[in-house]
Simulated assay, not measured.
Amino acid sequence: MYMIASFDCKFKTNKENIERILQHYGLRKIQSSLYAGDLNNDERKNLCENISKIIQEKDNVLIIPVCESCYSKKEICGRKIKFRDDLFRVY
């Protein structure tokens, strides 16, 4: 299922750690703190567990599942968002 992840971090080092975890699971950067990609339920659970281990008190990460039907209705205004299909997940 398609996932959108957004986060807000107080410290730059924790932001970099969260970004590294999101990228490890194959999520791709859309905006400065917004990532999107395809994850199954097990991957989503593992992602949340890994983020929970490093997240600090004032940080938060929001992960929203989006069905294919809803995602296909997306509209992009302004700069076109290009995903590179040659990216792959590393486990």
Results as ranks from 00 to 15, higher is better:
Lys29Val: 03
Leu27Pro: 03
Leu39Ser: 13
Glu43Phe: 06
Tyr71Arg: 09
Phe88Leu: 12
Arg84Ser: 15
Lys53His: 08
Lys53Gln: 10
Ile21Val: 12
Lys12Phe: 10
Ile76Thr: 13
Ala36Arg: 03
Glu49Arg: 11
Gly78Lys: 09
Phe11Lys: 13
Ser52Ile: 00
Glu49Val: 01
His24Ile: 04
Ser33Arg: 08
Arg79Tyr: 11
Glu43Gln: 13
Lys10His: 04
Cys9Arg: 13
Gly78His: 09
His24Cys: 02
Ile55Pro: 13
Leu22Ile: 03
Ser32Pro: 03
Arg89Met: 12
Leu34Cys: 07
Gly26Arg: 11
Ile30Asp: 11
Ser52Trp: 05
Arg89Ala: 09
Val61His: 11
Glu75Trp: 09
Tyr25Thr: 01
Asn50Lys: 14
Lys12Gln: 11
Gly37Asp: 06
Asn40Gln: 03
Ala36Asn: 00
Gly26Lys: 10
Ile54Leu: 10
His24Gln: 15
Ser69Tyr: 09
Ile21Gly: 08
Asp59Glu: 06
Gly26Trp: 08
Arg89Asn: 12
Glu68Ile: 00
Arg28Trp: 06
Asp8Val: 00
Lys12Thr: 06
Arg79Ala: 09
Lys73His: 00
Ser33Trp: 07
Lys10Phe: 01
Glu49Tyr: 00
Ile63Val: 12
Ile30Leu: 14
Leu22Ala: 00
Phe88Asp: 14
Ile81Met: 14
Phe88Asn: 11
Arg84Leu: 15
Ser72Asp: 07
Phe88Thr: 08
Arg44Tyr: 07
Gln56Asn: 01
Gly78Met: 05
Phe7Leu: 02
Phe83Met: 08
Glu43Met: 09
Val66Ser: 01
Tyr25Gly: 02
Ser32Leu: 12
Leu62Arg: 13
Lys73Gln: 01
Glu49Phe: 00
Ile30Pro: 07
His24Gly: 06
Cys67Lys: 06
Gln31Thr: 00
Glu16Pro: 04
Cys70Met: 07
Arg79Met: 09
Ile76Leu: 15
Lys73Leu: 02
Ser33Phe: 05
Pro65Asp: 05
Asp38Lys: 02
Lys10Ala: 07
Gln31Met: 06
Leu34Tyr: 10
Cys9Thr: 14
Arg89Phe: 09
Ser72Gly: 04
Asp59Ala: 04
Asp59Gly: 02
Lys80Asn: 15
Lys74Asp: 02
Arg89Ile: 12
Asp38Val: 01
Asp38Thr: 05
Ile55Arg: 13
Asp8Gly: 01
Leu47Ile: 05
Cys70Ala: 10
Glu75Leu: 02
Asp59Gln: 03
Gly78Asn: 08
Ala36Ser: 10
Leu22Asn: 04
Lys15Ser: 06
Gly26Tyr: 10
Asp42Gly: 02
Gln56Cys: 01
Lys45Asp: 04
